[in-house]
């Protein structure tokens, strides 16, 4: 993929990381990984459990320090002496898996105000920022003074995302934001994330186990396996390697298999199809 280097925001530069370096469970989670995030793009990060996705995520906002290599943000090495890594953590927002388990305040509004206050914004600014963030995630006004614990699963998750948005990040990294949500909840949350990208110009990195979701939303897909990045390309090119993906415990979107079935049966159809809409068009061509 051709990219405009002037829009490069964040880069992991040949990083390696090992857990339990001196112990019995010594294990190399990242092995010479290079990974870039550009302004305003949506990156899907996929890989089986234990492939290194979460370890990589935690490097991107300096929660873990690489053993080798470094991280660049806006052209600066974040491990250079004097670099403000707290500010980096504000710019690169991390939404963990099941973030609703981390809610603790008595009202939704206080919950969302906590982040900005913690990053040193004054009372007034924090409140304005929290208000805007709650609006952005699409929570109704009457939620503001409810306890976050009285909300539904999908709403709690929105509160958790709003808490990260309230500190005004430039990149939002999310670990399986739709896990455990019902189909409609998944769809709504995905729409909300897309709108953040469109209206705020946020860059998004989304870790997901749903091949359909990343195929639909991501501009680029990065595939991890055993601590390495094995593919980094636009979705249909990555999913063309569906056989290799299966060997890694992943898969291609359902629709790609459907088209492959038809091709195997002798139809002249495209197989680089990832969504229902595209599959429908291709099939209408051969049945009408």
């Amino acid at each position: 993929m051709e990219r405009d280097k002037s829009k490069l925001k964040l880069a992991a530069d040949h990083i390696s990381y090992e857990y339990d370096k001196s112990g019995a469970n010594r294990h190399k989670a990242l092995d010479d990984v290079s990974f870039e995030v550009y302004e305003g793009e949506f990156v899907g990060l996929i890989g089986h459990t234990g492939s290194g996705k979460s370890t990589l995520m935690q490097h991107l906002n300096a929660l873990l320090k690489p053993d080798q290599g470094t991280i660049w943000y806006d052209g600066q090495d974040i491990y250079e002496k004097g670099y403000d890594r707290k500010e980096l953590r504000r710019r690169v927002g991390l939404v963990f898996q099941y973030p609703e388990h981390q809610l603790f305040e008595d009202t939704v509004f206080n919950e969302v105000c906590f982040g900005p206050k913690n990053f040193g914004m004054d009372e007034k600014q924090s409140e304005l920022s929290a208000y805007a963030a709650i609006k952005k995630v699409g929570l109704p006004d009457e939620c503001f003074y409810h306890s976050p614990f009285d909300l539904s699963g999908g709403q709690k998750r929105r509160v958790a995302i709003a808490s990260v948005l309230a500190v005004k990040p430039e990149i939002l990294i999310m670990d399986e934001p739709t896990a455990g949500l019902d189909p409609k909840g998944r769809e709504e949350l995905m729409e909300m994330i897309l709108s953040l990208k469109e209206s705020e110009g946020l860059s998004i990195v989304m870790v997901s186990h749903s091949m359909e979701d990343v195929a639909k939303l991501a501009d680029r897909i990065v595939v991890m396996d055993k601590g390495h990045i094995v593919y980094d390309d636009e979705p249909r090119k990555v999913f063309a390697h569906y056989k290799e993906l299966e060997e890694m415990g992943l898969a291609a979107p359902q629709m790609m298999y459907v088209m492959q079935d038809l091709k195997d049966a002798g139809f002249d159809v495209r197989t680089d199809v990832t969504t229902i809409e595209e599959a429908k068009e291709e099939i209408l061509r051969i049945v009408t």
């Binding site: 890989g47 089986h48 459990t49 898996q97 399986e176 896990a179 455990g180 186990h209 091949m211 299966e246 415990g249 992943l250 898969a251």
Partner: peptide
């Protein structure tokens, strides 16, 4: 809910 495609 928490598994990758193969795990599912």
């Amino acid at each position: 809910a928490m598994l990758d495609p193969k795990g599912r």
